[in-house]
């Protein structure tokens, strides 16, 4: 008897293998003790130990975390302010689309535009220009997320706070922001992870003295995939994963309150 093969299931499996096999290869090979990453020698944490003493990698790693943290802070601040403003103004589709557009503009276009802007106002390129650039597109993601949440909020809740004698600031911090918490956490995690592994924009808007981790990886990869690269790839993966899981947990807790 011939078993019927479900074509869509087969395609799904093939696609999943194609998606995850390279990632699993990176993770697996990061534990290879060989100095040639393509030849399996044995399992060990040798390269994880090695990487701590690799000064260029470690300092670029610190820079990347610093840029991601500062970017997250400003994106959240600006993005939330814009969202609350758009909501109060009952702004129409045009302004909303305009505020979230940097999220979908091709990286390359954004990078060229920012570089042009910085050189026009003769700003020297360093980490602060990277932070500004990352904040531009991360803010757009925060606006998209927070605006969706604000739209679900009952506007009477803020009015109730005013009616009960609270000033604008108290209403903002005690009533509005707590209700936006799940969106703010999601926005923060997204900003952090987007900034952390962003390459194109950083490549255009960074100065030569302060490369970020993706830039260092890029320069290393020109000499072939070294074991360090697999280790760094795995570390980035873990940080992103932890971030997302953390956000989901907190999001659930925040949603249930």
């Amino acid at each position: 008897m011939l078993k019927k093969i479900n074509l869509s299931a087969v395609i799904t499996v093939i696609v999943l293998i194609f998606l995850y096999l390279p990632i699993m290869a990176v993770v697996g090979l990061s534990f290879n003790t060989s100095s040639n990453s393509l030849i399996w020698k044995g399992f060990g944490f040798d390269w994880y130990k090695n990487i701590w003493s690799n000064e260029p990698i470690m300092s670029s790693f610190q820079r990347t975390i610093f840029v991601a943290l500062v970017t997250t802070f400003f994106s959240l601040l600006i993005g939330t302010t814009i969202s609350i403003g758009l909501n109060k103004m009952k702004a129409g589709g045009f302004l909303r689309t305009f505020s979230t557009a940097p999220a979908i503009v091709p990286d390359l276009v954004l990078a060229i535009g920012l570089l042009t802007t910085f050189s026009t106002i003769s700003m020297s390129l360093n980490l602060s220009t990277v932070i500004i650039s990352h904040t531009v597109f991360c803010t757009a993601f925060v606006v998209a997320i927070v605006l969706a949440r604000i739209g679900l909020m009952d506007p009477s809740i803020e009015e109730a706070s005013t009616d009960l004698g609270a000033g604008a600031l108290k209403t903002l911090f005690k009533v509005t922001i707590p209700q936006l918490m799940p969106a703010l956490i999601a926005g923060a995690v997204l900003s952090f992870t987007l900034s952390m592994d962003e390459f194109v924009i950083a490549f255009f808007t960074n100065g030569p003295e302060t490369p970020t981790l993706p830039m260092v990886i890029y320069s290393m990869i020109r000499f072939g995939v070294t074991p360090e690269i697999n280790v760094l790839g795995t570390l980035l993966l873990v940080i992103s994963f932890v971030g997302v899981i953390f956000a989901q947990r907190i999001g659930k807790v925040a949603d249930s309150i």
Partner: peptide, 13 residues
């Protein structure tokens, strides 16, 4: 004067 809203508008958190 205080208003009791049609939707109650309780603070959910």
């Amino acid at each position: 004067v205080n208003l009791m809203f049609q939707s109650y508008a309780l603070f959910p958190h």
